[in-house]
């Protein structure tokens, strides 16, 4: 460390500039979230007149009522809505169903496979694992087309099963992620349990899963977020209202909104409803999620 006053001042000028840059980046990151909130609580008919008001314009819950299907057509149109029937409660439920089932099944089955790859000996194990990993290279659009044909032929278009099935069994990443952790678990514990007569089933449920609770939870959270945010696959197989998830519903809502005077407040209220569960999940598990990016590093 230098002790001359000149360079100390130079360093602190540099640090000040750096801090200013970082704060600007943080503001750029947060501002759209704020603007979504500000718009969602505004009266849509009044928005164009106050483009630079930092606070909601004519604060109202009208936009939320509109997208949750709680206001009449006249009310909705009076506040600048299109009047088309939208029911984000239903889409919220659908997203919950899809993301929850996908996460539970995918993480559980991937954990089973990861255990077999990490701790059991069987012929061809490493070759099969390499094949699983190779699947990471295939771009989704390539498998999506035949998968759509398959789901259609099975008669599962516009059903939860059709949306959930392809992701319910495994992803190469989930298996890879958990295998890393299982490899690190002390073998002696496992051997001790075996001497006591425990089979693999018991060891998996009583030893491996409890000891890997933290990484399994991290994986589950990441899987949940990915599944919640997925758009492409549910767009293809889940257009109908009874299984339509939030992301697909947002696309539909955006295309229904009148071209001349879009229902911006309604659109922002809808995006907020779609984003809020993930924001809450993130606030609850910020440390875990943020640190996992450091670990899983390159997936």
């Amino acid at each position: 460390m230098s002790v001359t006053t000149g360079s100390v001042r130079q360093v602190s000028v540099g640090r000040t500039v750096a801090w200013v840059l970082l704060v600007i980046l943080l503001i750029v990151t947060l501002f759209p979230f704020y603007w979504m909130l500000r718009t969602a609580f505004s009266d849509n008919t009044q928005l164009p007149g106050h483009p630079n008001s930092l606070l909601p314009v004519e604060t109202t819950l009208g936009a939320f009522k509109r997208v949750l299907g709680l206001s009449s057509i006249e009310e909705a149109q009076a506040q600048g809505g299109s009047g088309a029937a939208v029911n984000f409660w239903l889409y919220l439920r659908n997203s919950l169903v899809v993301a929850t089932i996908t996460t539970v099944c995918q993480v559980f089955f991937s954990a089973m496979a990861a255990y077999a790859f990490a701790r059991l000996r069987w012929p061809g194990r490493d070759k099969v694992f390499a094949l699983f990993l190779a699947a990471l290279m295939v771009p989704p659009i390539f498998t999506v087309l035949p998968n759509f044909v398959l789901i259609k032929n099975l008669g599962l278009l516009n059903s939860f099963a059709g949306i959930i099935l392809p992701g319910a069994f495994m992803t190469p990443f989930a298996i890879f992620f958990l295998r890393q952790f299982f490899l690190g678990i002390n073998r002696e514990l496992e051997e001790a349990a075996m001497i006591d007569g425990a089979g693999h089933r018991l060891i998996f449920f009583r030893l491996i899963i409890p000891m890997s609770a933290a990484p399994i939870a991290t994986l589950a959270i990441l899987t949940y977020i990915n599944s919640w945010n997925d758009y492409f696959w549910p767009l293809l197989v889940g257009q109908q209202e009874n299984v339509r998830v939030l992301t697909v519903a947002l696309g539909v809502f955006r295309s229904q909104t009148p071209q001349g005077g879009p229902d911006w407040a309604g659109l922002m209220a809808a995006t907020l409803i779609a984003a809020l569960p993930m924001i809450i999940l993130f606030l609850a598990f910020a440390r875990r999620i943020t640190n996992s990016i450091g670990f899983s590093g390159i997936k």
Binding site: L22, N229, R254, A274, I279, R287
Partner: peptide
């Protein structure tokens, strides 16, 4: 500058919101 987990979490936040949501907010 900082090892703050809060700063890292804020920086990460947009990544956790759906593409569709991000697209519509910026569209507006």
């Amino acid at each position: 500058l900082t090892k703050s987990i809060t700063v890292r979490a804020i920086i990460l936040a947009p990544y956790l919101v759906a593409n569709v949501v991000v697209a519509l907010v910026w569209y507006w």
